[in-house]
Design a protein around this nucleic acid. Structure first.
Lengths: 219, 219
DNA sequence: GCTACGTTCAAGTAATCTATTGAGTGATAT
DNA sequence: ATATCACTCAATAGATTACTTGAACGTAGC
């Protein structure tokens, strides 16, 4: 007998999983979660050659995780459907709960377990209504420019130390980033706490905020 | 610079995805979703050699998707935590929505698109309260014996044709299986419909039913 | 002790995956 | 046209993966 329909089906599911089975491709997906991007732009962000990035993108495309369109001489890639973000989310959750290695890396940023606890977007909305909170976007300038949370202040992590004076120490800081496991926000919160500033990270990143139907700037 | 913490983290997530990146391992996970099993028993169900199955299980273990315990001379494997089933679920969803190939396989069982639509467990409970429904477990006898839905009748798919007389044609049939994409229930529903019996498949399989906290026999 | 059984380990082969290089394609600009 | 830019394709070397075989290990029963 040839391969059963069952195995054929599972082979398809497995091929999707294999597409997620490379750190760079997960990185690519996280970046695409923020919006469309061309190949070169992605390659630069991720630190791979153009050709290599292109091939990774085509694997993701074959797996049905991204799609592309032509715009002039650019070919813009984007996530295909909302469930890709959901899939990444559950993958991260399983990792956090079941993989000791993940916990170790995350714990590396903080001394106290509690420091790691994130703030939900409901909580952020509630606290920011009272005006007691600085919402901090720690992504690079160009990503902030594309889209960001309303009222957020942009200080890329690498500039954080030199621009500490811009942060009101009387306010709480809630930092966010590209996604729930974007380490930039971990780094930022750790750095701010070391300087005695009350800081938390937002549970979600920008794409999850968008998926929740919450407002963005520019919309 | 060595690999950044970000890439290290993503490498961990990717390794989990790679563990899902093989049809046989997905099959193994689906079987383990029903309960603990020893290596040989699994190997027989899946149709792989013991050594090969053992190695697959160890990959799944390294990825934190399964765990094991010794019981006498057996080593029993089981899923690690509830989120593994959730991960499989979202993987299947992405596959169904984004991969044309998946749709093609599923469609192969039915002529009409509507025939594919599953029944939720809420619906099953409501309809079976009125006693109008035969709940049909199409898994092999031994799996039925371990645990099954309350009041379910067991006819393994391969015996379905020869035991058609046992099914009351006046009643609707709701068939279920190991999981949401276990093809046994697809085959059964297709076969029953060809014979003019009103049949649907349950949206979930046995593990999802259990995860929802619903009663089972024997409990 | 020995033997049987269930499982794991180790070695080997074939197939697949990653990243690099350099050539090729399609669209815009001059 | 021709040049340039953004991207893809093809060929390659090195690493990883899947499965087989046969040996090794741990437990249970004699």
């Amino acid at each position: 007998m040839s391969t059963s329909p069952k195995l054929k089906l599972y082979e398809e599911f497995a091929s999707i999983a294999r597409a997620l089975g490379n750190a760079h491709r997960i990185d690519i997906l996280e970046h695409l979660g923020q919006g469309e991007r061309g190949v070169d732009a992605l390659a630069a962000k991720i630190g791979l050659s153009t050709a290599n990035t292109s091939q990774h993108l085509q694997q993701l495309k074959r797996a049905g995780l991204v799609e592309s369109r032509r715009d002039g001489k650019y070919i813009l890639y984007r996530l295909k459907g909302d469930n890709v973000l959901a899939l990444l989310g559950t993958l991260f959750e399983v990792g956090e709960h079941n993989q000791a290695e993940v916990d170790k890396v995350l714990r590396g940023y903080f001394h106290e377990r509690d420091d790691m606890e994130p703030v939900s977007h409901e909580e952020l909305l509630a606290r920011s209504r009272d005006g007691l909170v600085t919402v901090l976007d720690v992504r690079p300038k160009d990503e902030f420019a594309m889209q960001h949370l309303p009222g957020a202040k942009n200080i890329p992590v690498e500039e954080l130390e030199s621009r500490l004076s811009e942060i009101d120490p009387a306010q709480e800081v809630i930092a966010y980033c590209r996604g729930p496991y974007c380490v930039l926000s971990f780094e930022a919160v750790a750095a701010l706490r070391q300087r005695g500033i009350k800081a938390w990270r937002l549970e979600d990143g920008l794409p999850e905020w968008r998926a929740a139907g919450l407002p963005l700037e520019p919309s």
